[in-house]
Design a protein around this nucleic acid. Structure first.
Lengths: 348, 348
DNA sequence: TTGAAAGCGCTAACAC
DNA sequence: GTGTTAGCGCTTTCAA
């Protein structure tokens, strides 16, 4: 018998299960009187038997599991790692626990994970959807059932969900403007996945910057990549081999990991950053400042994103009505050596 | 009504709850016959009502929650991040879900997290204990109840628990031997926490290397630090300010993050690595190869650690008897620029 | 102040 | 093939 039950304690104490339950849940404050004697007795037996409440049973009746489902593509992506940390922290403080699920950027595991989370009757669910636009119907179904649901980082354009995201149009706009400023015109964007909101927004920001300078945008410069260093590395090696990097003056990665892979490939080929080509990342990871060439990046405030998500979630759980559907958190451009030309514009 | 129940379906289909349960759990293969007609009917209604099983109820009767509790100090420590990823991946494949809990390196939150995990009646629990030696009684209690429990990365010396750890004696020995080889004698170790097994082992490895060379070990060179970049940074700044770095020829960090902080502080002061001082990390993070000065580190095979943990856990759940209590995974030294003296030993 | 009893949603043994 | 019943461990009326 690994676990004692209320009945075990009741039998020992010669009291009813109800009384034991009342004592152990400290219902005294709710106006329910229990004699000090029974109370002490029950408490003693509970300790003796090493009683641990069974939340499955409790929550079955209470309809409240004190669990939040967090579904992310992949905790190895540092961005989601940080989100997970900050969100956990806040939720823990409020007595919620975390059921962590991965979609691995794949629709089918994502679907299964969502179903699993729902079957566990969580109090709320936070989803950073897998790349692309999948499981929309399922998510809409959840929403329509008034189960607290928040989309994080990535959302579905034109669909109504509560969401907390970075202002990627702005972030990308600032970055691209800076690159243009440095004299770059052919700016390659290793953009993750083109159907994902994050990328859609960043491309919008890219276009905005070009439009402002009245420079035409070349569609071929948006290249899908994965999200990891190895992806950035592979794609860059291939581009070099194909001679496709000719004329490219800057490369921006969808995150710093990709940028790291790009740098690796370039260095291997003896291409100098920033002299021969500019490279920028996104996300401003802890290490980016200390790379062989410090990396220009866009800082995303993961702790702020998590904070907003947390607050929104609490409100949804409390069934408050929330006017604001989409929360956007602004980003900051961090310029470092990797995108600063030494002799800036001989033409100037 | 966000969720339909078996009873709802039963009512619609004019069948008993039991039959509905049987259909939905596809008991056909277990020799239980159900007419195709009722089956289709029930399936249709289930879909129509968007039925989702209530795992709280199911697991209450089955005594099997298909959840594993993972308790780590902090998912922001990259090491634990990777462990979490690989372990999740394996567990997902076997149909287990993850309840993620943090101790924040603190005994009290750790205790609460353990209690929470137990109350949720997980099938197994993987713990990377908070630094120090805490909650030992609680963990021993779990063990004595035959609840599958595995200690990960950190363990309790002289206490019997199943554990999966890196061979830190060996890892540290190799690193320190290398540093001695490079002519360093005063090797400062920013060691995290002295009571944690990881550190105890690394100090043992350190001593072993010194013993082999018949060089006395100076106790004052073991300095407790945290586990993050900022900790490494702060401590190094302080050491510099105090003039305590005089004579120190090498600094090793308990992980790469700490080493990063050390590098940062040294650079700020114009101290050159490796010319003026050698610096090494531990863990070999993705970025360590690409730092301004590529960082020497000890590679810990997180995926192998996770794999062993997974296999052991499955065995424990299946109530197999396991002879091997402690599983050790070896580490590999990765030598890079940060610890290689340019003019190696003018004395040679 | 305490107990009896119902019921949360589900599974499983037993009956027909 | 399908229904009836008991029961998992707990909370929560309702009575006493």
């Amino acid at each position: 018998m690994p676990y004692a039950t209320l009945a075990d304690i009741a039998k020992r104490a010669n009291k009813s299960i109800a009384t034991v339950s009342r004592v152990l849940n400290d219902k005294a404050d709710e106006g329910i009187r229990i004699s000090e004697e029974t109370k002490q007795q029950i408490l003693t037996f509970a300790k003796e038997l090493n009683y641990r409440p069974n939340f499955l049973a409790r929550h079955l009746v209470q309809k409240d599991s004190r669990v939040i489902g967090l579904l992310i593509p992949d905790i190895m992506q540092i961005f989601f790692n940080e989100i997970c940390y900050y969100l956990s922290r806040k939720l823990n403080e409020s007595g919620y626990d975390i059921l962590l699920a991965h979609s691995y950027e794949d629709p089918e595991p994502e679907r299964k994970a969502i179903e699993m989370i729902l079957s566990r009757r969580v109090n709320g669910i936070v989803v950073a959807p897998a790349k692309g636009q999948h499981n929309l119907e399922l998510l809409e179904d959840i929403r329509s059932r008034n189960i607290p649901l928040i989309l994080l980082d990535r959302y579905f354009i034109d669909k109504i969900f509560y969401s907390v995201t970075s202002d990627d149009v702005q972030g990308s706009y600032r970055l691209v403007s800076h690159l243009i400023d440095q004299g770059a015109r052919n700016i390659l964007f290793l953009c993750g996945d083109r159907e994902t909101s994050v990328t859609i927004e960043r491309i919008a920001g890219y276009r905005k910057a070009f439009l402002e300078q009245k420079i035409p945008v070349e569609e071929r410069l948006f290249l899908e990549s994965g999200f990891f260093q190895k992806d950035g590395y592979k794609i860059t090696r291939r581009l070099i081999a194909d001679g496709a990097l000719k004329g490219v003056e800057a490369i921006m990665g969808v995150n710093d990991e990709i940028a790291l892979g790009v740098l690796e490939a370039l260095w291997e080929e003896g291409v100098k950053v920033p002299q021969d080509i500019l490279v920028a990342g996104y996300g401003d990871e802890r290490y980016s400042k200390y790379l062989r060439v410090p990396l220009t990046s866009v800082q995303q405030q993961t702790s702020v994103l998590a904070e907003h998500t947390y607050r929104l979630l609490m409100k949804l759980i409390e069934k408050k009505k929330i006017p604001k559907i989409n929360t956007k958190v602004s980003c900051q451009l961090i310029v470092r050596e990797s995108t600063v030309r030494e002799r800036q514009g001989g033409a100037a």
